[in-house]
């Protein structure tokens, strides 16, 4: 199972690097999103395979239990339950990643407004006006027209 996860990580990270190296900032934003998936899956994989070890497996249960303590308190050994810690870490990462995505997309809008382009190579040479009054004074700057 871990091997499959490794392949998923490879695909997510590989495609995200491809996008990050692209010319279009929107693609870069997508790349960041995808990179988040790759990282989360990587952490998930490190909690080990969810498949129960052969000696503990029964006909009804072939997977480890979710980290919810049901009837059995105190908890089962981790051999029978998936590790909760990576999940907690990923949960945090997902939400933070979402907030950062919102921030990043807003940055794209602002970048487009103040420079008129989202092409990475052009941005490097563009004099960027960073003052806030710019976005205020021209609230309806046509954003669809490349400079």
């Amino acid at each position: 199972m871990t091997f499959v996860m490794a392949l998923c990580v490879t695909a997510c990270v590989g495609v995200s690097i491809y996008l990050l190296l692209g010319r279009d900032l929107k693609g870069v934003a997508m790349g960041v999103f995808l990179l988040g998936h790759g990282a989360n899956l990587s952490i998930m994989a490190m909690s080990g395979s969810p498949v129960l070890p052969a000696e503990n497996a029964t006909a009804a249960e072939s997977l480890k239990a979710a980290p919810i303590l049901g009837a059995h308190v105190p908890s089962p050994a981790l051999a029978n339950m998936v590790d909760p810690l990576p999940q907690a870490l990923i949960l945090t990462a997902i939400v933070i990643g979402f907030a950062v995505m919102g921030f990043l997309l807003t940055l794209l809008i602002i970048t487009n407004r103040s420079t008129g382009t989202l092409v990475v190579d052009r941005l490097a040479n563009e004099p960027v006006s960073t003052t806030r009054t710019d976005t205020r004074a021209e609230p309806f700057l046509p954003s669809g027209t490349p400079s």
Partner: peptide, 13 residues
Amino acid sequence: RLSEEVDSQHIKE
């Protein structure tokens, strides 16, 4: 906020 932006752009266009 973002959909407000979309709306206002729509008004403009």
